[in-house]
Amino acid sequence: MSGGRGAARSRWLPNQHGAWAMLAVPFLAGTFLGRPRWAHLPLLATWLLGYLAVYHGQQWLRLRVNSRNPNAPGRHVRPALCCGAGAALCGLPLAVAYPWLLLAAACAAPFLAVNTRYAYRNRERALLNGLAAVVPACGMLLVALRLGGGSWGAGVAPAVACLLYFGGTVPYVKTMIRERNSRAYYRGSVAYHVLALILAACLDPWLALPFTAYALRAAALPGRGLRVGVVGAVEVLASLALLGTVPAGF
Rank of each mutant, 00 (worst) to 15 (best):
residue 86 G to K: 00
residue 164 L to H: 00
residue 58 Q to P: 01
residue 172 Y to W: 14
residue 44 L to G: 10
residue 12 W to M: 12
residue 212 T to P: 02
residue 236 V to K: 07
residue 246 V to K: 01
residue 88 A to N: 11
residue 240 L to F: 14
residue 160 V to W: 01
residue 23 L to R: 06
residue 246 V to S: 06
residue 197 L to M: 12
residue 150 G to Y: 08
residue 72 A to V: 10
residue 77 V to H: 11
residue 182 S to T: 02
residue 34 G to F: 10
residue 225 G to A: 07
residue 103 L to H: 13
residue 57 G to M: 05
residue 125 R to L: 02
residue 146 R to H: 15
residue 146 R to T: 15
residue 156 V to N: 06
residue 8 A to D: 08
residue 147 L to N: 03
residue 247 P to A: 07
residue 84 G to K: 05
residue 73 P to T: 05
residue 72 A to E: 11
residue 1 M to W: 13
residue 208 A to R: 00
residue 161 A to C: 07
residue 20 W to Q: 01
residue 8 A to N: 11
residue 177 I to F: 05
residue 133 A to N: 07
residue 190 V to F: 05
residue 59 Q to G: 04
residue 21 A to H: 10
residue 135 V to Y: 02
residue 80 A to Y: 06
residue 208 A to F: 05
residue 201 A to L: 10
residue 30 G to E: 05
residue 81 L to K: 07
residue 225 G to S: 08
residue 28 L to S: 03
residue 102 L to W: 15
residue 224 R to Y: 14
residue 221 L to G: 01
residue 37 R to M: 15
residue 146 R to P: 12
residue 76 H to I: 12
residue 128 L to R: 03
residue 81 L to S: 08
residue 236 V to P: 03
residue 70 P to M: 12
residue 240 L to G: 10
residue 161 A to N: 03
residue 77 V to S: 12
residue 193 H to L: 06
residue 18 G to P: 04
residue 219 A to V: 04
residue 190 V to H: 03
residue 129 N to V: 04
residue 51 Y to S: 02
residue 211 F to Y: 11
residue 20 W to H: 06
residue 221 L to R: 06
residue 236 V to G: 05
residue 163 L to C: 03
residue 129 N to G: 04
residue 243 L to I: 09
residue 246 V to T: 05
residue 186 Y to D: 02
residue 76 H to F: 13
residue 66 N to Y: 09
